[in-house]
Computed example of a mutant assay.
Amino acid sequence: MRPWALLSAVLWSLVGVGWQRSSLFSKKGFVYGTVGHPVKIYVKLHQNSPVLICMDINRASKETVDPTYSWIGPNENTLTGNSRINITNTGKLVVKDFMESLSGLYTCTLSYKTIKAETQEETTIKKKYNFMIFVNPFAPGWKSVCINSSDCEDATNHNILQARDRIEEFFGRQAYILNHHFNKTIPAMHFVDHSFQVVRIDNCRPGFGKNEGLHSNCASCCVVCSPGTFSPDVDVTCQICVSVHVYGAKSCP
């Protein structure tokens, strides 16, 4: 969350979910895996994750014989369908009502068979896909600000600047009225045109921080503090604390 002085606002990077802008993201809201390194995904607090596909784009474009899927969540727990975890028969995963504690590594193993045309010999292939999911917060009241907007940050920034202009206009008119329509017993009010300014204050809520090195594709996002770090107040970064073993820690025990 990045408030401005004098005016309270909710500023965030993307509506609903922050995804990598790459071929891993499809127009249908699917995020495909990639072999060899994790795909980083940023989900808004209490929003659903995008649809995670246990397959890379190249494999998705080919015929896959007898596929099976196995999902493992944070702390290496095997994932099964429940009120928060939705796993389809085709290996698609959606995490509902995302919270800080749900952040972490999600791994899917895809197993399928290949058949040699000459000998009809079957071979089982296994591929592993890693998704690092981080929660990204917003403050109460964001829905009322972003009802008809596809980008909440643009909407709130526009509203803040519009409010600034109206406040400046108010002071300007007040100065004119007092100087021209009231008797001299009222103290004079002086206002310098365009002197009203809004100062940006960059901070995050407790348990969240910014880390350009770890989250280079979401450098301006306030992302949940990873295990080993914490953020007790409205600081911008998560501080190191080796005794912290959870996401979103607000203190160092």
Rank of each mutant, 00 (worst) to 15 (best):
V43Y: 11
L52I: 05
P74C: 01
V51R: 14
T90D: 13
D56K: 10
V94Y: 04
I72F: 09
T90M: 09
V51G: 04
D66F: 11
Y32G: 05
I87K: 01
W12R: 12
T119C: 07
T64C: 04
Y42H: 05
T119D: 14
N48P: 01
C108T: 09
G36W: 01
W71K: 15
S111V: 05
T123Q: 15
N58K: 13
Y32C: 10
G33E: 00
G29Y: 06
E122T: 15
L52G: 04
S49E: 07
K40H: 11
P67Q: 09
G91H: 04
N77E: 14
G36M: 04
P67H: 07
V31Y: 02
V94L: 04
Q120I: 06
D56E: 12
L110E: 13
K126C: 02
N89D: 06
S23Y: 08
A60I: 08
N75C: 07
S83N: 14
W19I: 00
E100I: 00
G36A: 05
P38K: 06
P38M: 06
H37C: 02
W71T: 14
N48F: 00
C54H: 03
I57N: 00
G36E: 04
F25T: 15
F25W: 07
I115G: 05
G81M: 06
L105N: 10
E76V: 09
R84C: 00
V35D: 08
N48Q: 01
K44C: 02
V39R: 07
T88P: 09
G16W: 06
K92V: 07
R21A: 14
V94A: 01
I41H: 01
T119V: 06
Y112P: 03
L93I: 03
Y106M: 08
I72D: 07
T80P: 01
E121G: 12
V65P: 00
I72C: 06
Y42E: 00
F25L: 15
V31C: 12
N58R: 11
I125T: 12
L93M: 05
L52F: 14
I53S: 12
K92H: 13
H37P: 01
V15I: 13
I72S: 09
G73M: 04
N58Y: 10
R59G: 02
F98A: 02
R21I: 12
E100L: 04
W12S: 09
K116T: 07
W19R: 02
T123N: 13
T80A: 08
S23D: 10
I53R: 15
L102P: 02
S23M: 08
D66N: 15
V15C: 11
R21P: 05
Y69W: 12
I57H: 00
M55L: 15
K96S: 10
P38S: 06
W12D: 05
N82E: 10
C108F: 07
L14K: 14
G91F: 04
S49T: 15
A117L: 12
P50T: 02
S23V: 14
K92D: 09
I41V: 15
T68I: 11
W12H: 06
N75W: 11
M99F: 10
S101T: 08
V43R: 11
S23E: 11
S49G: 08
S61F: 05
L11K: 08
T64K: 02
K62E: 10
G29K: 11
R21Y: 10
E122I: 15
N75M: 11
